[in-house]
Design a protein around this nucleic acid. Structure first.
Lengths: 334, 334
DNA sequence: CACCAGTGCGAAACCGATTTCGCACTGGCC
DNA sequence: GGCCAGTGCGAAATCGGTTTCGCACTGGTG
């Protein structure tokens, strides 16, 4: 018979029925302080019977912890960061934390200060900053907070920050190792614009792995853009060059699609004549439909979001950049 | 000089410095009760000067409102609902609401009851249920809550629930109207499995629009699967049938890709000889890279998430199914 | 001048937990 | 028997706001 405004059971109800004080009941349910086994059992039994659920609002207020994590995204509606945000938000839910998501231009200091104030007023327990995967380092805002701040999908400009990033170099290495495992030894690389750090890192991963195997690329890396058309052009040039090639590592899946199209047009059998590997796993994002055509490297963006979210609440938060291991997604193209 | 545990300014600090009582200060800042203009101005000035930000935890506790919306997703990690969730979460952030996201199998009653209890303990102010876009109606859980419940991307089995759904029929109509506007009059439809309601609705939208224009399809609808390969097969059959066709409305973008490939192989010029329209706008999801090849209908999944999120907090919540208007995304294929 | 309605403001209760501090009681030891 | 340490529990303060209720004061009216 709780005389509550919402009709729910309060701790005082439990205490009264169990014949103990409020403080004793609280201690029993939180396991703090020393309580005899007898009263412990009695309180727990009553709580169970009444289906007592502590009011988390009151709890948060008393403890000063909101069980809410701030999430600051950078144009999440129009960039690649979607999977990162999803991963983060789902992970936070698993950890019983609410997510307060503000979408701003992280580089616009003005707008961000307002978000920071809002976060502080809400007494967030931690902050997750999710970039858009582009190259620029975003300005560190860690110093505005007394709670943990973790960055994902974009480096901060402060070396002591905790940062989660995709492992582009690892992706290149993984793709190359896979092709080597498949017995390919004449591997070429077709990729995007070399001014992009991701492009260079993926290439470096490939080159390092080839070198470890005592090999060199089958042809010089061909740079272009991240598009299917660029893949078509690069592949045609590669074939025209007469280089002996039995595998192509493509900088991303768009380029790989272009390569596949050229192969089909030219009657090259994939993977018998030519193995193709991409990066990004778009066919995986567009899951549940269609048929996979491509072997690709998944940068595990969702996992990155999960890891970063878990990190905000973790005890061990070693500073620096953490690289999320990519995975190989097998398809018919290799 | 707040003697707070967190060093932040409390309302009592403002009141003391302004020389008024706590209650007066509260009333000024909330606009409740009658206060003279003089004291009003004084309190506001002090609050401004001290940069007073009310502790939202205390506020929530006092008001019994958590400023948190529960979000129950159905396998969001592996379905199409990603954009819906993103849209919802960003919209909630705009409305200053935190999101507590639990991902469950909505059809598994057991697991859900635990989530419901968690939501209730957290005193959520509303609930958003996001399905996976599939056909089955999910069991209504509205009756478990005293706060508003809104459904998105999946119908509930209770007619009084507020539900947001993509407008598949509208998508078919929009695609067809666009092709008619382009002067096409011999339009065929290649689509997925007819056991899917979405397939039938998109087809119906097309047929209705054609009929309104006094036209009939250029060929009987060809059903298949949602895959590129299916699009290839259907398109080859369509061409082999000898039907006169100047436009193809494809049930989704995968099929449309297959159609484009066949056109390229057969030397059909797109859009001169044949206009092609798809549905889903994947090239838009995979934004920022690549080159658009396809005209398509965007079902506006993110907007659906936004609308549903806004609805949870809205005053006017008219029950029933609400259809989100799709948009036409122009590409070079029409 | 007495009365009254209306205005402006403050004292204190309240939301429902956590936590500090100390009291009462027990049993062991000298 | 007296002292002391340790155990088990409760009274009350606390977190920082919101809200109720009523008091004091003002000016107008009869």
């Amino acid at each position: 018979m709780p005389s509550n405004r919402k009709g729910s059971v309060r701790l005082s109800d439990v205490a009264a029925i169990a014949g103990v004080s409020l403080s004793t009941a609280s201690k029993v349910l939180n396991g703090t302080d020393r309580i005899s086994e007898a009263t412990r059992a009695r309180v727990l039994a009553v709580a169970e019977r009444l289906d007592f659920r502590p009011n988390q609002l009151a709890r948060s207020f008393a403890l000063g912890r909101s069980r809410t994590i701030g999430v600051l995204t950078h144009r999440a509606a129009s960039t690649f960061s979607g999977p990162v945000v999803i991963g983060a938000v789902l992970q936070l839910g698993k950890l019983q934390q609410a997510a307060l998501v503000f979408d701003e231009d992280i580089l616009a200091a003005r707008e961000i200060t307002e978000s920071i104030r809002q976060f502080q007023a809400r007494q967030i327990d931690g902050l997750l900053v999710i970039g858009d995967g582009h190259e620029r380092r975003s300005p560190s805002i860690t110093h505005h907070f007394t709670v943990p701040v973790t960055y994902a999908f974009a480096a901060s400009d402060h070396p002591e920050d905790v940062v989660y990033l995709p492992d582009n170099e690892g992706a290149g290495a993984l793709a190359t190792r896979h092709l080597l495992d498949r017995g390919r030894t004449h591997i070429a690389h077709l990729t995007g614009d070399p001014s992009s750090i991701a492009v260079r890192l993926r290439e470096r991963g490939m080159l390092t792995t080839l070198k470890e195997a005592g090999l060199s690329p089958a042809a010089p890396t061909r740079y272009g853009s991240w598009s299917e058309g660029s893949g078509v052009d690069a592949m045609r040039e590669l074939l025209d060059s007469g280089a002996k090639v039995d595998a192509v590592f493509c900088g991303n899946d768009h380029i790989a699609r272009g390569v596949l199209n050229v192969c089909e047009a030219k009657g090259l059998r994939v993977p018998q004549d030519l193995a193709v590997v991409g990066v990004d796993n778009w066919e995986g994002i567009i899951v549940d439909q269609g048929v996979r055509r491509l072997t690709t490297i998944d940068l595990e963006l969702r996992a990155m979001g999960q890891l970063a979210a878990a990190n905000v609440l973790a005890d061990d938060r070693t500073p620096g950049e953490h690289y999320v291991p990519p995975t190989l997604v097998l398809g018919p193209s290799s």
